[in-house]
């Protein structure tokens, strides 16, 4: 399987606090990596380094493909202004930002892709509603559509079942298996049993160290 990205001896952190120390990690095509560990252990920091949101203090991150179109990302806590004037469809369209860049206009075909995605995840009826009018679980589904609309090579999920109701949680986990046929997945979760059941490999991030389970 072809390597997608590599972390080599990465140190990373915030201000004077070093969260990750000497982390090595490789992601290949078809991988489904579950990331577990205690709160504050560095799971979300690892995701931020992978996504390029946090530059490493030491070591290097090597992308084998352009990082720009590599990722679909579902964040853990999507805090946003509930009064922000953005519709559900626009939120999904924002997932095409890397593909469109900052100059290109959005076409009918782009809108059709966003609508198909909403249809597939049972959110088509909410397409014109403001994102602030939706429940936590619905917002999470819309953000999943945003993460998938660009057909990314890697799907990064940070505690994806947060706010999702039990019915959709089960459907979501079965969906991940299907998505894994098309893309690699890195999923952070507290739910050890779910991670073990779904992921092909599990790594534990604790006290800045990354170990294979």
């Amino acid at each position: 399987m072809e390597t997608i990205l590599e972390l080599r001896g990465v140190d990373a952190g915030y201000d004077r606090h070093l969260v990750l120390r000497g982390v090595h990690f490789t992601l290949r095509e078809g991988d489904f990596v579950g990331v577990i560990g205690p709160n504050g252990g560095g799971k979300t920091t690892l995701l931020k380094v992978i996504l390029g949101l946090l530059p490493p203090r030491a070591g290097e991150v090597i992308y084998r493909f352009p990082a720009r179109s590599l990722f679909g990302y579902l964040p853990q806590n999507s805090r946003f202004d509930a009064r922000f004037p953005i519709s559900v469809e626009e939120v999904v369209l924002s997932g095409l930002l890397s593909e469109k860049g900052i100059y290109k206009r959005y076409t009918r075909a782009d809108r059709a892709r966003a609508r198909e995605m909403l249809e597939a995840y049972g959110m088509a009826s909410c397409r014109d509603r403001a994102i602030g009018e939706l429940s936590g679980g619905q917002v999470q589904r819309v953000f999943l559509c945003r993460a998938l609309v660009s057909s990314p090579r890697v799907l990064i999920l940070d505690e994806p079942a947060t706010y999702v109701d039990n019915r959709f949680e089960q459907a979501f986990y079965s969906l991940l298996g299907e998505l894994n046929r098309r893309m690699s997945i890195v999923m952070v979760s507290h739910d050890l049993a779910t991670v073990r059941a779904l992921a092909k490999s599990v790594i534990s991030v604790s006290e800045g160290q990354c170990k294979k389970e």
């Binding site: 390029g52 949101l53 352009p66 964040p75 946003f80 922000f84 924002s94 930002l97 890397s98 900052i102």
Partner: peptide, 27 residues
């Protein structure tokens, strides 16, 4: 006129927009 859409996305969710590796800092 040229950049209202990416500015709109940055204003909504800056961290997510940064994951797309487009010229957020420039905007």
């Amino acid at each position: 006129v040229l950049f209202h859409r990416p500015l709109f996305y940055i204003a909504f969710d800056r961290e997510y927009s940064r994951t797309h590796h487009v010229a957020i800092e420039w905007l």
